[in-house]
């Protein structure tokens, strides 16, 4: 079915799709790494390919960037078929792989020159673009330093800068922030957002739910090579249930009174005695404000009251039955703080 498209570029333009995957399958021997993956990324948007290690994210990206030939199915990048027109695909996209893809023995500027030459850019253009890119990625001072002496964050930024030397309309980033400290990660997000504002289409893979939540317009969740869910971050969160009011009572002896009070305002209350915590389904902020007012007028002392929306992590858990992130945080990143979508409110009376 994928072979019927006659004028791929024209078709892609009209549908506004910068990246299209159609029934991509990749088998290595008996192992199916990618199993019937299809999705579309409209031009100027960000798709997050989310999944745990070994889910098939990298293999999918390798097929879409012509590094690996699909066992079956196909993909189009900027309207060009990855199997039949790999050259055209390579001209239209940039790739930052998972492993460092810069030359460690060259300086930042030399790396940019190397890739600029290999894209066939004129020398003067390479010089000008290099200056601009180094500036944009805050690497101007490090431009003449050898990569070996770069920090992890600088290396990642240069890697990205190198991918941009030929200003590709489509950019593939395979786990762009893995191994970065939280600050570098947030900085890199900012750069990626500015690229998208300028019209670049981005496909990024990540195992960090927060990253997909922060950057992606749409998320495709894959596990064991299969797509298990896709949608906007909000849609995915809605899929795994509604929001809940979570309320922590200061004194254990007031727990029963609190339960009774809450039960008179909401249809259902769940009690966690050990944590002195009550949970009730809620429609949104207004529900929580109402509950807050009720408790403020009562004698019950609360430690905490908040609205909890399911995080993408909850989504992943409900979809796959296992967590997405590596156990016990490989890095002490920002996801260790409570879910960013929990609005908390102190209610001490």
């Amino acid at each position: 079915m994928t072979l019927t498209s006659t004028a791929p570029s024209g078709r892609a333009r009209s549908s506004g799709a910068a990246i299209e995957a159609e029934h991509l399958v990749k088998r290595f021997g008996d192992m199916t790494a990618v199993d019937d993956v299809s999705f579309t990324v409209p031009q100027g948007t960000v798709l997050g390919l989310l999944g745990p290690n070994g889910a098939g994210k990298t293999t999918t990206v390798r097929m879409m960037t012509t590094l690996s030939e699909p066992t079956s199915g196909t993909a189009r990048v900027a309207g060009h078929d990855v199997v039949r027109e790999p050259e055209a695909v390579r001209r239209s996209m940039g790739l930052t792989g998972q492993a460092a893809t810069v030359d460690e023995l060259l300086t930042g500027r030399e790396n940019l020159r190397l890739m600029g030459s290999l894209y066939g850019l004129p020398k003067a253009a390479i010089r000008q673009l290099s200056d601009e890119l180094l500036e944009r990625f805050s690497l101007t001072d490090a431009g003449d330093k050898v990569i070996k002496d770069y920090s992890g964050g600088m290396r990642r930024r240069l890697d990205l800068a190198v991918s941009l030397i030929a200003t590709p309309p489509v950019l593939f980033l395979d786990e762009p922030t893995t191994g970065l400290d939280p600050r570098s990660r947030v900085e890199l997000w900012e750069v990626l957002r500015s690229l998208v504002r300028d019209g670049t289409t981005l496909l990024l893979t990540t195992q960090y739910l927060e990253e997909a939540d922060q950057l992606a317009d749409r998320i495709v969740v894959i596990d064991h090579g299969r797509i298990i869910a896709q949608g906007t971050p909000l849609e995915l969160k809605d899929q795994s249930g509604k929001a809940a009011i979570v309320l922590t009572v200061s004194h254990a002896d007031q727990l029963e009174a609190a339960r009774a009070l809450l039960a008179s305002h909401v249809p259902e209350v769940h009690v966690d005695v050990a944590a002195r915590q009550l949970t009730a389904p809620a429609d949104g902020l207004s529900d929580m404000t109402r509950v807050a007012t009720v408790f403020e007028r009562s004698e019950i002392v609360l430690d905490d009251l908040g609205l909890q929306r399911p995080s993408l992590d909850d989504v992943f858990l409900s979809l796959t039955g296992h967590r997405a992130e590596p156990p016990a945080g490989a890095t002490a990143d920002t996801t260790s703080s409570p879910s960013p979508s929990t609005q908390s409110e102190e209610s001490q009376s």
Binding site: R13, G16, P42, Q43, G44, T45, E87, R91, S92, S117, L118, Y119, G120, L121, P122, A125, A166, T167, P168, P169, L195, D198, G199, T200
Partner: peptide
């Protein structure tokens, strides 16, 4: 989005 100006004319060069 489709009609928005693509980032600085990506095809104004020939492969080397």
């Amino acid at each position: 989005q489709a009609t928005r100006v693509a980032p600085a004319a990506p095809h104004d060069f020939q492969p080397p």
